[in-house]
Every structure is written in structure tokens, then in C-alpha cells.
Amino acid sequence: MVVRVQEADFEVGAELAALRRDDPQIGALTAFVGLVREMNEGAGVSEMTLEHYPGMTERELEAIVGEARRRWAVLDALVIHRVGRLLPTDQIVLVAVVGVHRGETFAACQFIIDTLKTRAPFWKREVTPAGGRWVDARAADDQAAERWQE
């Protein structure tokens, strides 16, 4: 399991290759990449800054990935989340899961990103033509996370 919080961008291909390590048991790899959109809540976004709670963020991400690995028979998982200043089209987050079959890797990957969005202590502040504003938590994200509750 790899969990990283970093300002630097990441290279998806290289990260996925490292996760696979040419392990011949692996028959499926599911990856999700979250990106900065140019529009949010009807306003143009020129940039955003991601703040987090150092220490707790890593612990929470490790706990979420650990939960995913207990629930689904997957072989390994990776989460990289960026912080700091980001621009539209920039990569924000990479979640990737490898396993024997795709059913488990799809489910585990979606569980990790849905749960991360409601539990990992990150906060987005975006800049629009009207000035800076903190992004509000979305009810749709809560619902997406709730459906995974056992």
C-alpha cells in the first residue's frame, strides 16, 4: 500500500507501472484520476489551493485503503493526493487498485475515492472572478460515501 500527500505532480503511467511491478497474479487494474475543473457551482475557477491536516491526512488515507483491502480481495492499492496551488486541468488525486479480477478492483477504487472525499482532511479554496471562496462540501459526495456503509 502506498499513500502519498505531495505538492508535486505525478506521472500516472509510472505510478501504475510501479504498482503492478509485473506481478503475474494481477489480472485487473482500476485507476481514477481527479482533475481541477474550470467551472464549479456556476463560476469560472482560475486556480485553487488545497490545504490539509498533515499527519491526520496520511493516517486517514491509510485507514481507508486498509478498509478497502479488508472488504475486497485486491492485491494492492495506491493513493496520491496533491496539496498547494493547482490550476484547471491539473491532476489532484490518483487512486489505483490492482487485483485478480475487475469486479473487486472497480469496487475498491470507487470506495476509496468516495470515502476519501468525505473523510480525509483536505479543503479546497478556489479563486473565481468574484474572489476567493472555500468550496462547500456536497450532499452528493455524502450520499456517494454512504452507499458503501455496511
Binding site: H81, K117, A120, P121, W123, K124, W134, D136
Partner: peptide, 10 residues
């Protein structure tokens, strides 16, 4: 002890 608004990562 930390206090914060609902999280908005991802």
C-alpha cells in the same frame, strides 16, 4: 484537538 469544516478533497 482539531476543529474544521466538512472536508472537500478528492
Amino acid at each position: 484537538v482539531a476543529f474544521f469544516p466538512p472536508v472537500t478533497g478528492g
